[in-house]
Amino acid sequence: MRLGREEVLRIAILARMGLSEAEVDRFKDQLSHILESFEILQQVDTTGVPPTTHPITLVNVLRSDEVIDSLPQNMVLMNAPRKDGDFFKVRAVLGET
Protein backbone atom coordinates (compact mmCIF):
# COMPACT_ATOMS: atom_id res chain seq x y z
CA MET A 1 0.00 0.00 0.00
CA ARG A 2 1.94 3.02 -1.25
CA LEU A 3 0.52 6.36 -0.26
CA GLY A 4 1.17 9.38 -2.43
CA ARG A 5 1.43 13.00 -1.32
CA GLU A 6 -2.16 13.63 -2.32
CA GLU A 7 -3.36 10.74 -0.18
CA VAL A 8 -1.42 12.09 2.81
CA LEU A 9 -2.92 15.55 2.27
CA ARG A 10 -6.42 14.03 2.04
CA ILE A 11 -5.92 12.24 5.36
CA ALA A 12 -4.51 15.43 6.91
CA ILE A 13 -7.69 17.31 5.99
CA LEU A 14 -9.87 14.57 7.48
CA ALA A 15 -7.78 14.70 10.68
CA ARG A 16 -7.62 18.51 10.61
CA MET A 17 -3.88 18.14 11.00
CA GLY A 18 -1.65 20.89 9.70
CA LEU A 19 1.54 19.41 8.26
CA SER A 20 4.74 20.99 7.02
CA GLU A 21 6.06 19.99 3.58
CA ALA A 22 8.73 17.89 5.27
CA GLU A 23 6.11 16.12 7.38
CA VAL A 24 4.02 15.30 4.32
CA ASP A 25 7.05 13.63 2.71
CA ARG A 26 8.04 11.81 5.89
CA PHE A 27 4.53 10.53 6.58
CA LYS A 28 4.16 9.45 2.95
CA ASP A 29 7.12 7.09 3.37
CA GLN A 30 6.53 6.03 6.97
CA LEU A 31 2.81 5.36 6.63
CA SER A 32 3.41 3.45 3.39
CA HIS A 33 6.04 1.32 5.10
CA ILE A 34 3.78 0.64 8.10
CA LEU A 35 0.72 -0.17 5.97
CA GLU A 36 2.72 -2.49 3.72
CA SER A 37 3.79 -4.52 6.70
CA PHE A 38 0.19 -4.64 7.95
CA GLU A 39 -1.06 -6.13 4.69
CA ILE A 40 -0.57 -9.55 6.30
CA LEU A 41 -3.98 -8.94 7.87
CA GLN A 42 -5.49 -9.62 4.45
CA GLN A 43 -4.10 -13.19 4.62
CA VAL A 44 -6.37 -14.06 7.55
CA ASP A 45 -9.60 -15.83 6.63
CA THR A 46 -12.27 -13.94 8.55
CA THR A 47 -15.28 -15.32 6.69
CA GLY A 48 -18.21 -15.34 9.09
CA VAL A 49 -16.13 -13.87 11.94
CA PRO A 50 -17.85 -10.98 13.72
CA PRO A 51 -15.75 -7.92 14.63
CA THR A 52 -14.77 -7.28 18.25
CA THR A 53 -15.20 -3.66 19.22
CA HIS A 54 -14.64 -4.25 22.93
CA PRO A 55 -13.11 -7.01 25.04
CA ILE A 56 -16.14 -7.18 27.29
CA THR A 57 -19.71 -7.70 26.22
CA LEU A 58 -21.18 -4.27 26.52
CA VAL A 59 -24.86 -3.72 27.00
CA ASN A 60 -26.61 -0.41 27.41
CA VAL A 61 -25.62 1.17 30.68
CA LEU A 62 -28.40 3.18 32.24
CA ARG A 63 -28.76 5.09 35.47
CA SER A 64 -31.78 6.47 37.21
CA ASP A 65 -32.75 9.97 36.19
CA GLU A 66 -31.50 11.80 39.23
CA VAL A 67 -29.89 15.20 39.38
CA ILE A 68 -26.28 14.92 40.46
CA ASP A 69 -23.67 17.61 41.00
CA SER A 70 -21.58 18.69 38.06
CA LEU A 71 -18.57 20.97 37.93
CA PRO A 72 -19.28 24.66 38.47
CA GLN A 73 -19.09 26.72 35.29
CA ASN A 74 -16.01 28.67 36.34
CA MET A 75 -14.05 25.44 36.80
CA VAL A 76 -15.15 24.09 33.44
CA LEU A 77 -13.90 27.31 31.87
CA MET A 78 -10.70 27.61 33.87
CA ASN A 79 -8.49 26.05 31.17
CA ALA A 80 -10.14 27.79 28.22
CA PRO A 81 -7.61 29.58 25.98
CA ARG A 82 -10.26 32.20 25.08
CA LYS A 83 -13.43 32.94 26.95
CA ASP A 84 -16.04 35.65 27.20
CA GLY A 85 -18.00 35.79 30.43
CA ASP A 86 -19.50 32.36 30.98
CA PHE A 87 -18.73 31.16 27.46
CA PHE A 88 -15.95 29.55 25.47
CA LYS A 89 -14.97 32.00 22.80
CA VAL A 90 -14.57 30.58 19.29
CA ARG A 91 -13.72 32.10 15.95
CA ALA A 92 -16.46 32.84 13.44
CA VAL A 93 -17.88 29.59 12.07
CA LEU A 94 -20.38 30.86 9.53
CA GLY A 95 -19.06 32.15 6.25
CA GLU A 96 -15.86 30.12 6.53
CA THR A 97 -14.88 27.29 4.23
Partner: peptide, 26 residues
Protein backbone atom coordinates in the same frame (compact mmCIF):
# COMPACT_ATOMS: atom_id res chain seq x y z
CA UNK B 1 -3.72 10.09 14.21
CA UNK B 2 -2.93 9.99 10.50
CA UNK B 3 -2.77 6.18 10.44
CA UNK B 4 -6.04 5.86 12.34
CA UNK B 5 -7.80 8.48 10.25
CA UNK B 6 -6.77 6.59 7.14
CA UNK B 7 -7.95 3.22 8.50
CA UNK B 8 -11.35 4.71 9.38
CA UNK B 9 -11.84 6.71 6.19
CA UNK B 10 -14.45 5.94 3.57
CA UNK B 11 -13.26 3.23 1.20
CA UNK B 12 -10.63 1.89 3.60
CA UNK B 13 -12.71 1.14 6.70
CA UNK B 14 -13.64 -2.43 5.68
CA UNK B 15 -10.18 -3.39 4.53
CA UNK B 16 -8.36 -2.04 7.58
CA UNK B 17 -10.41 -1.21 10.66
CA UNK B 18 -13.15 -3.83 10.28
CA UNK B 19 -10.61 -6.46 9.20
CA UNK B 20 -8.45 -5.72 12.23
CA UNK B 21 -11.49 -6.07 14.51
CA UNK B 22 -12.33 -9.46 12.99
CA UNK B 23 -8.75 -10.61 13.52
CA UNK B 24 -9.16 -9.33 17.07
CA UNK B 25 -12.03 -11.78 17.51
CA UNK B 26 -9.84 -14.67 16.33
Amino acid sequence: IMLGTYALSAGYYDAWYLKAQKVRTL
